[in-house]
Simulated assay, not measured.
Amino acid sequence: MNTRHVSQVIQRDPSEVYAFMTEPMNLPRWAAGLAQSEVTQDGDRLLVDSPMGRVTVAFTSRNDLGVLDHTVTLPDGTEVYNPLRVIPHPDGAEVIFTIRQLNASDEDFDRDTDMVRADLETLNSLLE
């Protein structure tokens, strides 16, 4: 199984980037690859319309380490674990998203990587 790490340096304090990213209503603003409309919160889960259909997203609890790992439950019930971090960087913060190929074709893996890269560039443009 192939793994890729996509990162984006954002010239903002890591705590500010993390705070923006953990706000559920901000998700459609920066994560079009996951949320294409308003987010509905159901306890600690988020319900969103995504390019994959209606999905459930469960983020790890807020923490002081910049960890935003989340599990996406796809319409067919498949759960996909997504590691996501905001870490200090000399120029501010670095956001790192880990993408695993799992059962995806090489073409789909490339497409997913491009979508994550675009989402992180959008995040950067919103915060810088």
Rank of each mutant, 00 (worst) to 15 (best):
M1V: 03
R4P: 01
R4G: 02
H5F: 11
H5S: 11
S7M: 14
V9W: 01
Q11N: 04
Q11F: 00
Q11R: 03
R12M: 12
P14G: 06
E16Y: 01
F20D: 01
E23G: 04
M25A: 15
N26C: 05
P28G: 11
W30C: 04
G33F: 03
Q36W: 05
Q36C: 06
S37E: 11
S37I: 00
S37R: 12
V39F: 07
T40I: 12
D42E: 15
G43M: 06
D44M: 13
L46D: 02
L46H: 05
L47V: 13
L47M: 12
D49E: 09
D49Q: 11
S50D: 10
P51A: 14
M52L: 15
M52Q: 15
T56H: 08
S61D: 15
N63T: 11
D64W: 09
G66N: 11
L68D: 00
D69L: 03
V72T: 05
T73L: 02
T78A: 14
I87H: 11
P88A: 06
P88L: 00
P88T: 05
H89V: 04
D91T: 04
G92P: 05
A93S: 03
A93M: 02
V95D: 11
T98Y: 04
I99K: 06
R100N: 12
R100E: 12
Q101W: 05
A104G: 05
D106A: 06
D106C: 03
F109T: 07
D110C: 02
R111C: 03
R111M: 07
R111W: 07
T113K: 07
A118W: 09
A118V: 07
E121P: 02
N124F: 04
S125G: 01
S125T: 08
S125K: 09
L127F: 06
